[in-house]
Every structure is written in structure tokens, then in C-alpha cells.
């Protein structure tokens, strides 16, 4: 682990907009050949971080270097080495798939012959050969995403950046995108992605950083993070939710419980060993007349890591957003 080549070095990165600090004193490394994930709720600073690394934003302070090139002083050198798949469907609906790739070919200064060869390969890779000469407005969401990825791969990048690669896609398309990402990694490409989806981070990322309020809360491989949390999780759902606070305070004092947390429908309890904890939990619930609707016991999941470090579930966040709309 120690000797691995560093692809991206972020040192003390801070980005402020007027009075608002989007990212504050962030430092981390991305190793060559890994899939690195930036995970966090919306507005946590992961997009700002990504955009700074790909030269779209200038840091307020701190530095970012990509394969040894500073993103501000040597922006063009960085741009030649990276590919970017933006979050929005950055597609011109009037252009065909092939025309998108031809345009980018010219912007990366490829010769006509070289561009044509690469475009043919990429269209085959993302299975868009048949649709290549149709205007992009006729494409489905999944096809647009595939074209996006082909655009990101056109410069034959050393590092590929994916901003929320499967946001809003159906299950089939998601799995397809995951396949591409794994295949690119197998070819030796370094991949940096942001995501809102915990299962995606868990499935794909070799290492990930959980970002919240502009800071890295924790960083490691999904397994490390889950083990690091320690203990297993008992989740209770109560029939009467007004009883939640009483049960929380009763359980918090007990030695078998490592951490007790109220959730909207019940409690999440981190326990040392379930054999000791479960009887104690049931005893307390009985004694306080808290009827249980549901009880679940599981090893820590990435959700639990996320909750432990950000103080809230990523799903709550999504829910709040929807209500806001």
C-alpha cells in the first residue's frame, strides 16, 4: 500500500464562495489503478472537489496535482491526461453520437484518421454503433449515459472522472455502467467517481472518502470502514414511536451497547456481541412496555458507516430533497 504510485495528490484544498466554504482543508491521495469514490450527501463538497481536480475550479488555497502536474499552473497538461463524464447529460440533442465524438476528437487535436479509428472502437465498446448516426435527442437515458462515457474515454485518458455516473438510471443500465467501470479498471485506468449511492460505492470502489460539510469524515476501503466501525448493528422498529426516547436513554447506560441512536421509526444500536446485547435489549423493551414491530440484526453496512460519520442517513437526505421540490 505504501509504495503505490500516486495519481492525484490533494493537499490542503480549500474552496470558498463569498462567505460560504464549500471545501475546507481537504487532503487525500488517489493511487494509480484504483477506483476511488467520493461519497457524501448533496452539497457536501464532493462536486467542488472533483471540479477542482479536473481544472474547472481554482482552489482558494491548497494545491492539487494530477500525475505530477499542478491543476492551476499546468492546467492544459492535466486536461490532456484526463477524461470527464459530467453529472448532467452534457449532450447536444441536435448532434448525432458520432458527431459528439468527432467534435471532441478535434478539440483533443487528433488527426482525422486517428479520431475515426478511436471513435469506431468506442462506439463498439458502449454498444452505440447502430444509433451512432441518429441525433442524440432520440436516445434513451441509458444511451445518453453511454455516449457520455464514450466522450469521457475519447482522449484515451490516464484518469477517468465520473460525476454521479448512474444517477437516475434504471437498474439494467446501472449494472451495465458498473461493468464498464470494472473493465476500465482492469485495463489499468485510474477512476475517480462521486456517488450518492452507497451500494455503488460498496460494489465498485477500492477506497472511498466520505465527505460531509466540506471535510473528509473518513477514508478507506469499504471493508476497512465497516470493520473500523466495530461491532454489529441491531435495528429496532417500535410500534409506538413516542417511546423511542425512553428506550434510548434506558439502553445508552448499559455496558453491552456501544452506541445507541434514534432513527425515525425506532433505534439503531451498535453492540459488542449480540449474545449479550439482544437479551438485554428485549428485557428493557419489555420492562418499559415498548412493543417491537420489527427487529433486525446485521453486520455493519456502508449505510451504518455513513450514518456514524455524518450523523444522518443518505436516504433521509434524498427524502428531504424530494420534499423540498
Amino acid at each position: 500500500m505504501m509504495d503505490r504510485a500516486v495519481a492525484i495528490q490533494v493537499s490542503g484544498l480549500t474552496k470558498t464562495y463569498d462567505a460560504h466554504t464549500a471545501v475546507s482543508d481537504l487532503s487525500f491521495q488517489v493511487y494509480a489503478g484504483e477506483i476511488f469514490g467520493l461519497l457524501g450527501p448533496n452539497g457536501a463538497g464532493k462536486s467542488t472537489t472533483l471540479r477542482t481536480v479536473i481544472t474547472l475550479l481554482t482552489p482558494t488555497s491548497g494545491t492539487v496535482s494530477v500525475l505530477g502536474h499542478d491543476t492551476v499552473r499546468e492546467a492544459d497538461a492535466v486536461r490532456r491526461l484526463i477524461g470527464y463524464v459530467p453529472q448532467e447529460r452534457a449532450i447536444d440533442r441536435f448532434l448525432t453520437g458520432r458527431e459528439h465524438l468527432e467534435l471532441l476528437g478535434a478539440l483533443y487535436h487528433l488527426s482525422k484518421a486517428e479520431a475515426a479509428k478511436r471513435i469506431a472502437e468506442l462506439l463498439k465498446l458502449v454498444e452505440l454503433e447502430e444509433a451512432a448516426d441518429r441525433p442524440a435527442k432520440t436516445y434513451s437515458g441509458g444511451m445518453k449515459r453511454k455516449l457520455d462515457i464514450a466522450c469521457g474515454l475519447l482522449p484515451n485518458p490516464k484518469i477517468l472522472f465520473l460525476d454521479e455516473p448512474t444517477l437516475g438510471l434504471d437498474v439494467q443500465s446501472r449494472l451495465r455502467i458498473w461493468d464498464y467501470v470494472r473493465m476500465l479498471k482492469a485495463r489499468g485506468m485510474t477512476i475517480v467517481m462521486t456517488t450518492n449511492y452507497l451500494d455503488e460505492a460498496d460494489q465498485l470502489c477500492d477506497r472511498l472518502a466520505i465527505i460531509d460539510k466540506g471535510k473528509i469524515m473518513t477514508l478507506g476501503s469499504p471493508t476497512e470502514l465497516k470493520i473500523g466501525l466495530g461491532g454489529d448493528i441491531v435495528s429496532l422498529t417500535l410500534k409506538d414511536q413516542s417511546k423511542i426516547p425512553i428506550l434510548v436513554s434506558a439502553l445508552t447506560k448499559q455496558p453491552a451497547m456501544r452506541a445507541v441512536k434514534a432513527t425515525p421509526t425506532g433505534l439503531d444500536i451498535r453492540v459488542e456481541t449480540p449474545e449479550k446485547a439482544l437479551p438485554a435489549i428485549l428485557e428493557s423493551a419489555n420492562r418499559l412496555d415498548c412493543q417491537l414491530e420489527f427487529i433486525e440484526y446485521h453486520r455493519p453496512r456502508l449505510d451504518d458507516v455513513f450514518i456514524a460519520y455524518t450523523g444522518r442517513s443518505i436516504k433521509d437526505d434524498v427524502l428531504v430533497q424530494k420534499e423540498g421540490v
Binding site: L56, I82, E88, R89, A90, I91, D92, L107, P155
Partner: peptide, 14 residues
Amino acid sequence: DKENGFLERLMTTP
């Protein structure tokens, strides 16, 4: 282009 992210894509090219 600014609103749908196309401009951003152009800006990441050299």
C-alpha cells in the same frame, strides 16, 4: 451549453 453542462465538458478539453 452552460445550463446542460456541455460547456463544462468543453472546458475540460485542452
